[in-house]
Write a protein that binds this DNA or RNA. Structure first.
Lengths: 331, 331
DNA sequence: CTGAAAGCGCTAACAT
DNA sequence: ATGTTAGCGCTTTCAG
């Protein structure tokens, strides 16, 4: 049994194909009688519209795509939830894809979405180079979440990473710490700004910044943590660039028989569910990922349905969530 | 500048459109000369094939879809990684979508993938009712990962949940525990079998099973954990149906001022990265999610490229990963 | 090896 | 309110 097409429905309902098309999309210029006949025929035949045909003919897909760099990082599901909740209120479909931590995959995912003719694309946690992203943005409205990109070809939504990093660092300083290290995310999205915020806060307080470079993963956090404690013995507090690397640092601290927060205080970034586990209790900076996701969708909608063309770059303020991993240093 | 079409490429390369089509897909029956002309024209024009048109005309998409129920559960990214690595070796595209823990979304995601004409679909962690899944499987080859479904309409890949639960429970029994509770995932995929494995192992050892029902999330683990410790005071060990709920139980244990493993031993399931954090060190059962994912892809390929039509149900053996949360009970 | 021609299933003017 | 008619951009016979 080949799949029924619109022609089958039309024949069965005793109307023309065009009318079926209208009826299916809820046009008001279809008589209740015809509408009903169509509805019945659709049900009887189990008809489903062929999206490729529809998209091709209409040159629209009513579909938004999300490209996530790393499904393993618990921050991204939060953003995606925000996107999802915003899209649900609209009449759009949502496709998600993961780049699996790989630039080439990211480029491929972007091309696929563009080639599919998606109406809009949201990229989050992307590592892809700016020119490639901008090239994509020329084909399809594009918003980048959680990576600051100065470009008038696309929109961005970010938390203020510098402010967030300052919040974290200042919190440690206020507690009385003087020897505060930073585990950076290297060149990952947001990492340079967080590092800058940390360095700025340290300088302002007349303290010496000490940075070890990781990559926003737990394993890189372990490596950078080892490096930090090896070279910076006085260290009594660490600000890690994200929660995942903070967990790596926590492993190092545990491994060295040190106690948190008695011997070392620790702050993360992203306020993921892992930070919130009572057993972990990681003090962390909250980017408000859901809100970032919702804003991303609204930016897309502005372009799609209200014809905005000039770029917008939104920024929201992060907040510090204090938990059990930070305390005043032992004397 | 409207996007260049195949006609533009053909004109520029001085050949016919059909030839461009062949050349693009690497057909051997194109002269090197033409092939080169096409390649050059494509590059100069920045031509990209319109996938909707291609899919419509060829009635194939060379695309596989993955539907994940809950992006927040760190188990699924592991499965997805396996899928991804298997797909990379083949010439298929991969689309992922999340059902965001919601049956209706799952149904919608499935329909979207079918309506898009994807060549094959993998569902993992799905909660959708079996008839709906089977209906989907009638349109598109479908494999369900990590949920046992006895059906000859679709393929499944599972770890042996009963054996895994027995492994976990027996480990606790072998350590000397007699009062072992179970936090179940309720009717979530795999949960009933894990519960059955636990009950079986307990019965075999002449011990009384005590079950609290959760839902495979951390928060449900907290609720079920409270319930368990409230009603089962002698309890010295808990087998949680997955790592997420084990983390919830861990919160409860911490909250009651109990120590792990000195006062209570704890075992999870899935062996996610959170279990492996040294700071958590959760003993857990490993389903070998990557392998599940790779097998899922190979099942799809068997149907797609080797014409298999009868259903296959694969089962792999889980293994226990011992860490710091399990020890002999204090006397 | 190449070109002509017929669709894939649907939408979108345009008529009526 | 409904039907007619062109396509959308591509693949795929089929001739040559």
């Amino acid at each position: 049994m080949p799949k029924p097409t619109m022609d089958d429905v039309a024949r069965r309902a005793g109307v023309s194909r065009a009318l079926v098309s209208l009826a299916l999309r809820g046009s008001p210029k279809v008589s209740p009688r015809s509408r009903d006949a169509v509805r019945r025929a659709v049900a009887e035949l189990g008809y489903r519209p062929n999206l490729n045909a529809r998209n091709l003919a209409s040159n629209r897909t009513r579909t938004l795509g999300v490209i996530v760099n790393d499904l393993h990082n618990p921050f991204f599901p939060v953003v995606t939830d925000g996107i999802k909740s915003a899209v649900d209120a609209l009449d759009y479909r949502l496709l998600v894809t993961s780049a699996f931590l790989d630039n080439e995959n990211e480029a491929a995912a972007l091309e696929t979405f563009i080639d599919l003719g998606l109406d809009g694309i949201i990229m989050t946690g992307v590592r892809l180079d700016q020119p490639s992203i901008e090239r994509g943005a020329r084909s399809t409205p594009l918003v980048v979440v959680s990576r600051p990109i100065a470009s008038d070809a696309l929109d961005t939504v970010n938390n203020d990473d510098v402010a967030g990093a300052r919040l974290a660092t200042q919190h440690l300083i206020d507690l009385g710490h003087r020897h505060i290290g930073h585990v950076s995310g290297g060149d990952a999205a947001g990492a340079p700004l967080r590092r800058a915020g940390y360095v700025g806060a340290m300088r302002d307080a007349g303290l010496k910044p000490v940075v070890a470079v990781g990559a926003f993963t737990e394993s890189s956090g372990v490596r950078a943590g080892e490096e930090l404690f090896d070279s910076f013995e006085e260290c009594t507090a660490v600000f890690a660039g994200n929660d995942l690397s903070a967990l790596g640092v926590l492993d190092v601290i545990d491994g060295r028989g040190l106690a948190v927060p008695d011997d070392v205080s620790l702050v993360g970034y992203d306020n993921t569910f892992v930070a919130a586990l009572r057993h972990v209790g990681l003090t962390s900076v909250d980017q408000h990922g859901e809100r970032l996701g919702r804003i991303a969708v609204s930016l897309l909608i502005e372009r799609l349905e209200h014809g905005r063309t000039e770029a917008r770059h939104e920024m929201i303020s992060p907040t510090l969530v204090r938990r059990e991993t930070t305390a005043a240093p032992k004397m």
